[in-house]
């Protein structure tokens, strides 16, 4: 279980997050929703350690920690809004790069990548390069890349925004499938219908007033 307590963040005098508390329980799918500019993505970036909060504490399974430590321990995996696949690497290499650099046997890393790709219906794309994939395929590769490091919590930043509306259903099915497998997931989205469709719990982030 990951608890974030009293998280606050300002950018250039504008309060983005004010005293936010988040509890992510194991096997839960939590949706973080709110209007544009409310700080949803900032909160996701803070959870993933890409952004430092001005104040607040992080507690992982009862022990106080930092988001940087969670990242280093491989607790958190992120699926970025624009996927951020590495264009210079094939699909398979995108997935195996980090495991191999962290000492996994290349053959085992490759076998694991191919298994993940097969699960995500991308078995025939292992040697393709990201530019040749559709948006939905890129997203699934990004998911496979995050899963290859066995994170405890998978974060999605606006998973439906870069996709064709017709693909929303398939992302929802995928999130539900991971949920059924016991994965803990956090989804930042402005798409309330999507949040309703997949989440067990919803956290609404409100837009803050400007501070003097």
């Amino acid at each position: 279980m990951l608890e974030l307590k009293n998280i606050s963040k300002q950018f250039g005098g504008r309060k983005i997050l004010d005293d936010i508390n988040v509890t992510i329980t194991d096997h839960q799918t939590l949706a973080i929703v709110g209007p544009s500019g409310a700080g949803k993505t900032t909160l996701l970036r803070i959870i993933s350690g890409l952004e430092q909060p001005d104040s607040g504490t992080f507690i992982w399974n009862g022990i106080q920690t930092t988001p940087q430590q969670l990242r280093l321990d491989g607790i958190i995996g992120v699926v970025f809004q624009n996927f951020e696949l590495f264009p210079n690497l094939s699909v398979q290499d995108n997935i195996t790069l980090s495991p191999i650099l962290h000492g996994q046997d290349p053959k085992a890393a490759k076998a694991n990548a191919l298994q993940l790709l097969a699960q995500l219906d991308l078995a025939d794309q292992a040697s393709a390069y990201p530019f040749s994939l559709s948006g939905g395929q890129k997203q699934r590769v990004a998911i496979a890349r995050a899963l290859a490091l066995n994170p405890k919590i998978l974060l999605y930043d606006e998973p439906t925004s870069a996709l064709d509306p017709a693909l929303r259903e398939s992302v929802a099915d995928l999130v539900k499938q991971f949920k059924a497998n016991g994965m803990t997931q956090v989804i930042v989205t402005h798409d309330l219908a999507f949040a309703d469709l997949v989440a067990d719990a919803t956290l609404t982030v409100k837009k803050q007033e400007a501070v003097d």
Binding site: V78, E84, F86, L97
Partner: peptide, 11 residues
């Protein structure tokens, strides 16, 4: 984002 993705992959 490429650098951030690399950070999240612990590179």
């Amino acid at each position: 984002g490429q650098t951030e993705a690399s950070m999240m992959l612990n590179l």
